[in-house]
């Protein structure tokens, strides 16, 4: 049987690499403000360490979907993902949609603008990312597929109806 020290040497990592919105970040594991503690969630790292506050933390308990980001293209809850366990992954946050230099929006963002598919807007980044993952996988969803895909995104203002219209419109516009 190996000793704990042997194991620690082989499987405890000291740096991780995250690709966020196409940009690569090398992050040290540690306790300083610009480092990643093993207990940090991906949501925490994105917001507090990388300053990408477009990702919102609502419940911090895996139920509201406000913190949804795309990990290798799939929507996941960044509040329920340890940053150290996202090592090597490619993350897309709301800041990664559209082009900030020329102001061009992703078609889904544009459809949300056109349909006023939000009220308070706190849940909107998570909703847009979930919708993007859906349309990337299924470019022509039915309304009920849109609703099922968004079943894990809380919205309390009830912007759901406009969101569904916006996602359907974005699907049409992307075709």
């Amino acid at each position: 049987m190996k000793t704990l020290a042997d194991i620690v040497n082989t499987v405890e990592v000291s740096t991780i690499t995250l690709t966020v919105n196409g940009r690569q970040y090398e992050l040290e594991i540690g306790g300083h403000p610009d480092e990643v503690d093993p207990a940090h969630t991906l949501a925490h790292t994105l917001r507090e360490t990388l300053g990408l506050t477009g990702t919102k933390v609502g419940c911090d308990g895996g139920a509201c979907g406000a913190c949804t980001v795309l990990m290798d293209g799939k929507p996941i809850l960044s509040c329920m993902m340890l940053t150290v366990e996202a090592d090597g992954k490619s993350i897309t946050t709301i800041e990664g949609l559209g082009d900030p230099l020329n102001g061009k929006l992703d078609p889904i963002q544009q459809a949300f603008v056109d349909n006023t598919a939000f009220q308070c807007g706190f849940c909107t980044p998570g909703i847009i990312l979930t919708a993007k993952a859906l349309l990337d996988e299924n470019p022509s969803p039915t309304e009920s597929e849109v609703k099922e895909a968004l079943a894990g995104n809380h919205c309390r203002c009830i912007s759901h109806y406009h969101v569904v219209e916006a996602v359907m419109a974005a699907a049409r516009n992307r075709r």
Binding site: L52, L97, V113
Partner: peptide
């Protein structure tokens, strides 16, 4: 505020 909301 639509642009700010949809871009985070």
């Amino acid at each position: 505020d639509a642009l700010d909301i949809v871009t985070g």
